[in-house]
Nucleic acid binder design. Structure first.
Lengths: 219, 219
DNA sequence: TCAACTAATATTGTATACAAAAATAGATAT
DNA sequence: ATATCTATTTTTGTATACAATATTAGTTGA
């Protein structure tokens, strides 16, 4: 713990919020957290300040902190921005990906084929993450990747419900194929468009997505 | 000060950094700030934590806080993302602007014509801000606007040098005209492209921009 | 039984105190 | 004169103490 207690707290709380261990709306009691992590309230509060600024929690004056609840309007707006950012990753990847990276995209996609055939949802999920992270690397813009990741994390709690159903996997796989093709062909516009709609559609239609949201997650 | 001392501190320091009163690299002494604002170190530190999370300052463990210095690579990346976000604002404005908003865009642009003719840089700057803010409103995505504004603010200190020269004003005015036309025609793709390159070009070419940067602002 | 007021309790926000690490200055040696 | 080591001083990070506000519980009255 050479980098300070509050930094560690930020990290831990972030993780708990992103993984859903702490659900939107949960109260974050300073005393409780202090006891839990064996520190005083001071570093706890400093951690909460940072999480507040990054949007993961909401800090209401004199009324304590809660894990951020996102209302429907804000959520749609955030999805809109995230899909644009992911599209941008695709566009830049089409422009800048190395041959190595193109090769890796193909390889991961091939493995996905197996996961699809064997209906291995777990494996497909992992390969899906790997594919998107390869695109992140290929876009050569660390700031963009960081912004995209931050936003993904803020929305993570709300995307938990949308598990990949069998049908959606087939569609996802097909979309991946076209995305990789566009990137390989250095077709920036197409890669942009395909990735943008891929992200938007990852949760099926918005209507489906909204329907699957537990009501208590909406404020 | 019913919303807490630290909130006020965040606001004040943000302002000082954005306006350039506090320059990148300036050290932020906790004691000094505490004295300056007549508070203890506690709310000062809490404010610094938030500014750190938002990227305006950098907090090195055990070595204090400084106004964020952005290296060239990160700056280029941030400009790339900002222009994409502004382009997105244009795209959404083309899709969603009300007739009122279209009317306002035309009006502001007309006034700009006068500023160009009379070489009134001050007036042109103000109208430029008004035009872009009208587009922000028209895109109907508060989250997007907030993200864009935050990024603008982070880059503000580095855009100070690039004043609008006479020649650039003419070009800017012409670009505005095409952007408004695209939005009015509901041409999303064109509005996107035009605004994206408009932002990228706002600082002349990147070479010019980099050349005008004081060396001490780069880390 | 329920509503409204009041007292007790708990929680947040700020100030102060103290421990640990870094920066600074001074002394010594080459 | 310069460099290096040591002692002093600052400055950061955390804990604790206290004041102000919000929450809760209990009581009274209808």
């Amino acid at each position: 713990m050479t980098k300070g207690r509050h930094a560690e707290l930020v990290h831990q709380l972030e993780r708990q919020i992103i993984t859903g261990e702490l659900k939107p709306g949960s109260r974050l009691d300073e005393m409780a957290l202090a006891k839990q992590f064996n520190v005083s309230r001071t570093p706890v509060r400093e951690a909460l300040m940072q999480l507040n600024a990054s949007g993961l929690i909401q800090l209401r004056p004199r009324r304590g902190a809660v894990v951020a609840k996102i209302d429907l309007k804000a959520m749609l707006e955030m999805f809109e921005v995230m899909s644009e950012l992911e599209g941008m990753c695709g566009r830049l990847a089409a422009k800048r990906a190395s041959d190595n990276e193109l090769e890796k995209l193909k390889n991961v996609h091939s493995k996905s084929q197996i996961a699809v055939d064997t209906h291995d949802l777990e494996l497909y999920y992992e390969l899906n993450v790997e594919l998107h992270e390869t695109i992140y690397l290929a876009c050569r813009n660390d700031f963009l990747v960081q912004q995209t990741t931050t936003l993904r994390n803020r929305l993570a709690a709300y995307r938990r419900g949308q598990l990949l159903s069998g049908n959606r996997i087939n569609q996802s796989y097909a979309e991946h194929g076209k995305i990789i093709e566009a990137i390989t062909n250095r077709d920036e516009k197409l890669a942009n468009e395909l990735l943008r709609s891929h992200i938007m559609m990852q949760s099926g239609t918005f209507n489906d997505f909204i329907a699957t949201l537990p009501k208590d997650l909406l404020e």
